[in-house]
Computed example of a mutant assay.
Amino acid sequence: MESKSLQAPKWARFLNSMILIILVILILIPFLHVLAVSFNEGVDTQKGGIGFWPRIWTIENYKEVFKQDNLLNGLMISLFRTVVGTVLGIGLMSMAAYALTVKDLPGRRFFTFFIFFTMLFSGGQVPYYLVLSQLKLTGSIWVYVIPSLYATMNILILRTQFSQLPYSVIESARIDGASEWLIFRKLVLPMSKPVLATVTLFTAVGHWNDWFAGTFYVRDANLKPLATLLQEMLTQQSALSDILLRSAGASSYAALDKITVTGQSLQMATIIVVLLPMILSYPFVQKYFVKGITVGSIKE
């Protein structure tokens, strides 16, 4: 009887379900439109009227995307920075967050304030580039990994989660002689899977979608990640289409007639290519979002 009294009334559950369904539809509508345009002929797309189904099917947009010479190499660079950067970043950030929850840690409040203070101010882009240059990171693949090992917001999120874990479980382990490393690895991490999965997903998406670092910090084309290569290709293709559209010469009109891929259709295909790996990997971490945060804890 007590469990039933804690349940929400039927009308409230129905209202929540309807709101969630509406939100899902609102999210799917633009995605389906992008998918339809990516498979539609570019010139036909400019006429408008493309909804959620291509009017003239084509894969030329994706062929243009995969024509990039360094595409496979860029894919490997993106996979390297995403996997290595996420694993190292989550490991170091979670250890730092756990250290900040230890009450007898000397200078704990100072370190917490110091980490939070970095969220409020930035040294600027030029000093940041000079620091990377002095560290010999510019032009290196590690420029994608090392500067992003620590994210202040993620550390604070993890710290908040760790501080809410049952203190009796951790204290019992300490009384039994467990080291802090053993407590962190065997108790804290298993009980924090949902928040770890969330932070991992955010970190991986940030690495995968980042094109800025490859554009401004790396000159070697063999070290550019996939997002940077697609961004450069999109910029070049859009510029070429604009030049031909604005030109009034007969030769330009003849060249324009041969164009089936436009900047808009190419942009949509690029979005799908970049998003697809993240979409496919999401189901593997989604289950942790609905798990309890005190798995294995004792009842008090």
Rank of each mutant, 00 (worst) to 15 (best):
residue 290 V to P: 00
residue 32 L to P: 02
residue 2 E to M: 03
residue 25 I to R: 01
residue 271 I to K: 09
residue 37 V to A: 11
residue 176 D to W: 08
residue 42 G to S: 09
residue 134 Q to T: 14
residue 170 I to T: 08
residue 194 P to H: 07
residue 69 D to E: 15
residue 120 L to A: 12
residue 251 S to R: 03
residue 184 F to Y: 14
residue 21 I to W: 15
residue 159 R to K: 13
residue 255 A to R: 10
residue 268 M to R: 05
residue 185 R to C: 11
residue 122 S to R: 08
residue 2 E to V: 04
residue 46 Q to N: 12
residue 46 Q to R: 10
residue 207 H to K: 04
residue 197 A to S: 12
residue 169 V to F: 06
residue 37 V to C: 08
residue 237 Q to F: 09
residue 262 T to W: 14
residue 280 L to P: 01
residue 66 F to V: 01
residue 25 I to G: 04
residue 157 I to N: 01
residue 124 G to V: 04
residue 29 I to R: 08
residue 210 D to M: 01
residue 41 E to D: 15
residue 294 T to N: 15
residue 27 I to L: 12
residue 204 A to Y: 00
residue 83 V to Y: 09
residue 21 I to C: 12
residue 131 V to R: 04
residue 101 T to Q: 06
residue 201 L to H: 11
residue 192 S to F: 00
residue 143 V to L: 02
residue 160 T to S: 15
residue 240 L to H: 11
residue 74 G to S: 02
residue 57 W to C: 00
residue 78 S to Q: 06
residue 29 I to C: 03
residue 139 G to R: 04
residue 149 L to I: 13
residue 134 Q to D: 11
residue 261 V to A: 10
residue 61 N to F: 06
residue 215 T to N: 14
residue 212 F to Y: 15
residue 5 S to M: 12
residue 248 A to R: 13
residue 57 W to Y: 13
residue 259 I to D: 05
residue 92 L to E: 07
residue 188 V to T: 06
residue 131 V to Q: 14
residue 113 F to R: 10
residue 243 I to H: 03
residue 145 V to F: 13
residue 263 G to Y: 07
residue 250 A to E: 12
residue 282 Y to N: 05
residue 32 L to Q: 02
residue 199 V to Y: 00
residue 54 P to L: 11
residue 142 W to A: 07
residue 205 V to H: 00
residue 101 T to V: 05
residue 11 W to V: 11
residue 191 M to I: 02
residue 67 K to F: 03
residue 212 F to L: 12
residue 242 D to R: 02
residue 150 Y to E: 08
residue 209 N to W: 03
residue 141 I to C: 05
residue 101 T to G: 05
residue 259 I to Y: 00
residue 226 L to D: 09
residue 281 S to W: 08
residue 59 I to G: 15
residue 106 P to L: 05
residue 9 P to M: 10
residue 190 P to K: 08
residue 258 K to A: 13
residue 195 V to F: 14
residue 141 I to H: 10
residue 65 V to S: 07
residue 252 S to N: 13
residue 193 K to L: 12
residue 116 F to I: 15
residue 165 L to V: 10
residue 257 D to N: 07
residue 102 V to T: 06
residue 165 L to G: 14
